[in-house]
Write a protein that binds this DNA or RNA. Sequence first.
DNA 1: TTGTAGGCGTTATCAT
DNA 2: ATGATAACGCCTACAA
Lengths: 339, 339
Amino acid sequence: MKPKITLKDIARELEVSISTVSKALKNSEEISRDTKEKVQAFAKLYNYKPNNIAISLKNKRTKNIGVVIPAIVHHFFTTVIRGIEKYANAKGYNVIVCLSEESFDREVINMEMLANGSIDGFIMSLSSETQLKGDYNHLKEVTEQGIPLVLVDRVTNEVECDKVIIDDELGAYVATKKLIEQGRKKIALITTDDYLSVSKARTEGYKKALLESKMDIDESRILKLSTMEMDEQGIQDFFKNNDVDAVLCVNEIFTVYSMRLVQNKGLNIPEDISFIGFTDGLLSQYANPSLTVIAQHGEKMGEISAQMLIDKVESEDEEETFQTKILEPTLVVRESTIN
Amino acid sequence: MKPKITLKDIARELEVSISTVSKALKNSEEISRDTKEKVQAFAKLYNYKPNNIAISLKNKRTKNIGVVIPAIVHHFFTTVIRGIEKYANAKGYNVIVCLSEESFDREVINMEMLANGSIDGFIMSLSSETQLKGDYNHLKEVTEQGIPLVLVDRVTNEVECDKVIIDDELGAYVATKKLIEQGRKKIALITTDDYLSVSKARTEGYKKALLESKMDIDESRILKLSTMEMDEQGIQDFFKNNDVDAVLCVNEIFTVYSMRLVQNKGLNIPEDISFIGFTDGLLSQYANPSLTVIAQHGEKMGEISAQMLIDKVESEDEEETFQTKILEPTLVVRESTIN
DNA sequence: TTGTAGGCGTTATCAT
DNA sequence: ATGATAACGCCTACAA
């Protein structure tokens, strides 16, 4: 085993001072060619690499960014992480991922762990429990300490910081419009509780489209489910009790599960009933029929978040100016709607 | 803005020495009740939290573990990460996730970044490019430096370290047996190139089952595809040129895509043709028909990896004894096979 | 009971 | 051209 070598080791071996070694390795003009070559050769031979931790302590910069998200077994968040990784790695940053699993407590614990020097800034998406509680003190504390924070997708107005979201209202609006244009009259919405920022916005988009087309908003056609688990029974009951000819769902799973139910009832998609979902993931692509969806561009959101965060981390000035970047969703038409 | 407070700050304010503060906060017996209370109250008031970086430097322990995996937009790896997070967080460790995106170079770069003090140990799954090249020097260097390493799922014999895998051969064997028992005579295998450790093992399990049942191995019924991208054309051609009554696929996507093709040809699943896939993910659960699969227990694998790694990190003794944990896959029967 | 000093590995400033 | 010193924040053996 050959343990890591330090400046001190090199200095001792070569019988020079530590600072000479440090300078030599940085190719400083102060050091003679001779010494530099000797030091550099030795360093290469023993594969010297500076210790990140020591540098972090010195610079008060870790080159780590903390990402706290509610879940990872969801295609959307997965793409966000990928986007963050892509940009961050290119800039020489590592990404520390923590999962809140939709729990307020775990969100708080994770942030506290990371906030004590482990990271230069946070990118996060709020857990549903946090949005339900409406308690954002852990976020405020972090920003008060001067740690940059970027909220992505699931955000709140209660905290002043940079934000990256897609226009969820627009997405739902466009989707609903599409269904209306195709002559659908009884359009249902399957969503999650309103305390989730995204669900609220989507419900509004849905209603806006209906109103604009002078269609009634029938609250019984709006099904609100828990974020936490997949409530299959709830969906079954809904389709048992409602007669609809189109459905907008706020995620892939609701969509695919609903499609199976109506298919088993003998209905044809999209002839008898159309479906549009949110998130352009694997399920959407490989479902049968494949799903028409509102694509959320998670990877792009991740990249932009990372960019905003790193810009702030690396900027010298202390001016507190925050921006919210709103991306446009895209309608991807596949087989679950009439083309 | 209230920046982080340090021991030094507290010492200055309270006009005591830094070490007194340090001891007081640790409730040391050496310090008088009076002083302790004063210091602790002050610390709480100003929300003092020790700086992780300084502690890491001192202890030569970061409480971070590095995870390097080929991809994240795959359900299996996602569950592995979740398992790692679960165990690691419970033990007070953070998880730094790096994606190699199946690239050898990115795998090397990421490991080097992390190996310079940022982490206490690695959990990784080899990129396909690495397995193709067969170059494992970056892993060897890490282990030679005394950094614990656990390989998970995609492993190699070339490196001596702890490993966690499932018995892929057994999985494929069990699946193939199942198909044979149901009277299938023309069983195809859709897999990826043999240089991937898991694919090789699965192919062997498939062949073993056939041989055991005295069935011929028809190489033309074995389709090998690239790991990198989804070769839809390759699958289409395969089904055009081959007449099969059952298919074993090494992942969900191959399975679901294949099912669509044969469905479009007018075949019924599972009456005319059966399918079994690997990985029990969302696609399997929500495909139509839902998939019979070999579940790989990714979350369990992640937990065990984290446990093995942290045990090693925290163990005092230097003895180099490595183990390979082999989990048993599980056959989950759903609609894509006859029950 | 409290304080001093040295060290973790690095860098930067200021001598020599 | 080279080296000594202090500092980042914390801990701890040893003095006082």
